[in-house]
Amino acid sequence: MGFKLLSKLLVYLTASIMAIASPLAFSVDSSGEYPTVSEIPVGEVRLYQIADGVWSHIATQSFDGAVYPSNGLIVRDGDELLLIDTAWGAKNTAALLAEIEKQIGLPVTRAVSTHFHDDRVGGVDVLRAAGVATYASPSTRRLAEVEGNEIPTHSLEGLSSSGDAVRFGPVELFYPGAAHSTDNLIVYVPSASVLYGGCAIYELSRTSAGNVADADLAEWPTSIERIQQHYPEAQFVIPGHGLPGGLDLLKHTTNVVKAHTNRSVVE
């Protein structure tokens, strides 16, 4: 069995187990497998329904001669939608809004960016022009300005110390501490036991640490421990890039980060 097929099978099995364990909360999309990078042309966006009122959005972007996937989250909030992270750029984010209108038909009224990198804030200006209120932590807003990236308009308070959590509509926002970046936030959907790890969490097929220019490698494993301790009931975990899975993604990420750190020390 090929690795790609095995990865998709694991996603399907995880979703099936969740649907059985929580039949009222989960209505997993039966329309197909989780979209992969090879299936999404740059400039297009796919939506994948995880649970009743919960979707991931998947886009792709060219970077350094390669094409990478990027995940975000959409959560229903009454007759409105909360968006977590842009679709990595203005063109993708405009396509995301169009796809949401086509498939869901509810307005996106608020959006949260989970850290300051372009795959999370690139497209904020498109959201703002569409009347979406954009939010991020003060740290993310400051770092985005320093980096020359787009800056969300509103500040999220109460997320300055490791372990801080605040309720934001249908989700809980959690600051686990520094990891992929010093400002990275985690998003949890309690009604569906869905954990969105953003770039602080890796997919299972990833074996290298990737972009760690703004990471705190020493603190990252401790931050992941905080996530595990705060959300032990999480059933569906979405990484910032690639295929979702279960809580095993947290341990896998820790292993990859520690291996990278150990290699760096040896070198």
Rank of each mutant, 00 (worst) to 15 (best):
S160M: 07
T114A: 01
F63H: 15
V75T: 06
P239R: 04
L10P: 03
M1A: 07
P152H: 13
Y231D: 11
Y48K: 03
P23M: 00
S205Q: 14
V256F: 13
D125R: 09
H115F: 00
E203S: 01
P69T: 08
G210M: 11
A218S: 10
V266A: 07
A200G: 11
G210Y: 15
L127I: 13
T60K: 04
A209F: 06
L173K: 00
P244N: 03
S38H: 03
V132T: 14
G177C: 05
A130F: 01
T36Q: 05
G169I: 14
L249C: 13
P35F: 11
T182A: 02
A95M: 14
Q103T: 14
T60Q: 03
P41Q: 09
T253F: 05
P170N: 10
A218L: 05
A234V: 12
V126Y: 15
G210L: 05
Y196S: 07
E225L: 08
L96A: 08
R128V: 10
V146C: 02
L73S: 10
F174L: 07
N71H: 08
P176R: 01
S181M: 02
P232W: 08
K251P: 14
D79N: 08
P23N: 05
A59I: 08
K251V: 10
D52G: 07
A259K: 01
I84L: 11
G2T: 06
A66S: 04
L9E: 09
S161W: 12
V124Y: 11
R128I: 04
Y196H: 02
A259W: 06
V108M: 05
E147K: 04
V146P: 02
S223D: 08
E44G: 08
I104K: 00
T182R: 03
G240R: 03
V28K: 06
S62I: 01
V124T: 15
L156H: 01
I238F: 02
V108H: 01
I227W: 03
A98I: 00
D52V: 07
N92S: 13
T254K: 05
E203W: 04
A87V: 01
S30L: 07
K8T: 03
I151Q: 15
I100A: 14
Q235M: 05
P23R: 10
G32N: 00
R110A: 12
L204F: 03
V54I: 04
G65D: 03
A66L: 05
G32V: 02
T222D: 10
T14Q: 03
G169D: 11
A200C: 09
L247A: 04
S223R: 12
G65F: 14
H260G: 06
A21V: 12
V132H: 15
S208D: 10
L9R: 08
K102S: 07
S223L: 12
S30K: 02
G245Y: 15
L9P: 06
R110Y: 03
H117K: 00
V45P: 09
G198H: 00
A200H: 01
A130E: 00
T109H: 15
Y135G: 12
T222W: 12
L5M: 13
A51W: 10
L247C: 15
E172V: 13
L6A: 10
E145L: 02
I40W: 06
E157F: 14
G198F: 01
V28I: 11
H252C: 12
T14H: 04
S30H: 14
S223Y: 02
S30I: 07
Q49V: 10
S139L: 04
S139R: 08
L6I: 05
F3S: 04
P232K: 15
S16H: 15
T253H: 10
T261R: 07
I17N: 04
A95W: 10
Q229W: 12
H260C: 07
G246R: 05
L106Q: 08
D119T: 00
L217Q: 03
Q229V: 09
P190Y: 15
I151F: 15
S22H: 05
L82Q: 12
P35A: 09
A179R: 00
L195Q: 04
A66Q: 07
E233A: 05
V28D: 04
E101S: 04
A133C: 15
D214Q: 09
A144D: 09
I58F: 03
A59G: 05
T222R: 10
H117V: 00
G177S: 04
A213F: 10
I40D: 06
A129Y: 06
L47H: 05
E150Q: 15
S27Q: 05
D183V: 01
A66R: 07
A51K: 05
I58C: 05
V166G: 10
D125M: 14
T207P: 03
A98R: 09
Q103E: 08
S27R: 05
T109C: 09
N184Y: 01
S264H: 15
V108A: 12
Q103C: 03
E147V: 07
V194G: 11
T86V: 14
S27V: 06
A111P: 00
D248S: 13
N149A: 03
A144V: 05
K8Y: 15
P138V: 03
V171D: 00
V237R: 03
V108I: 14
Y48W: 03
Q228W: 11
L5C: 01
L185Y: 13
E39Y: 13
L24C: 11
A129N: 15
S160G: 12
V132Q: 15
S7E: 12
V265S: 07
V194F: 12
I20E: 08
N92H: 09
E99L: 11
I20R: 10
P221T: 13
E145H: 06
R263G: 08
S139N: 00
T222H: 14
A213L: 11
N262D: 11
A94K: 14
V256I: 13
G78R: 06
L6V: 07
G89V: 04
D119W: 03
E150H: 14
G242Q: 03
A213E: 11
Q228P: 02
S27D: 05
F236S: 03
E219C: 05
F236R: 05
R141H: 14
N211C: 12
E33I: 07
R206V: 07
I74V: 05
W88S: 06
I50R: 10
F174M: 12
H57A: 07
I224R: 02
N149P: 03
R263S: 07
V42W: 08
M1W: 02
T222E: 10
H117Y: 00
I224P: 02
A130D: 02
N211G: 09
R142M: 13
D77N: 09
L127R: 02
A192Q: 14
E147W: 11
L73N: 09
H115G: 00
A59L: 05
H230L: 12
H115M: 00
F168S: 06
G148D: 12
G197P: 05
T134N: 14
A213S: 10
H180R: 00
V189M: 14
S160Q: 07
Q235F: 15
T153P: 12
L249Q: 10
V126K: 15
F26T: 03
I50L: 10
M1C: 13
E33R: 05
Y202W: 11
I238M: 15
A95D: 10
S162I: 15
E99T: 09
E145M: 03
R76F: 02
E150T: 01
A21T: 02
H180A: 00
A111H: 12
L185Q: 14
R46D: 07
V187F: 01
F26C: 12
S181F: 01
T86A: 14
I58W: 03
G53L: 08
L96G: 07
S162D: 09
G210W: 09
I58Y: 05
R120K: 15
H117R: 00
L47C: 04
V42K: 10
A200N: 02
H230K: 03
L156I: 14
E44C: 05
L217R: 05
D79M: 09
S38P: 07
L82I: 13
N211Y: 15
T60C: 05
D119I: 00
Y48E: 04
Y68W: 04
G122V: 04
I74Q: 03
K91I: 12
G148T: 06
R141P: 15
A209V: 11
G53R: 06
V67A: 04
M18K: 02
L159N: 13
N92F: 01
V256M: 15
H230D: 15
I227M: 07
A178N: 04
L173Y: 00
V266Q: 13
T60P: 02
S208I: 13
A136W: 08
Y202Q: 14
D183L: 01
W220Y: 11
A218D: 14
S191H: 08
L83H: 00
R167D: 10
V11D: 04
E203R: 12
A19Q: 11
Q235V: 06
E150L: 01
A21P: 08
K258F: 13
T134C: 15
P152A: 15
T14G: 09
E147C: 02
I50F: 15
A144S: 10
F168H: 09
L106P: 03
K91M: 14
T182V: 07
A95N: 06
V67I: 10
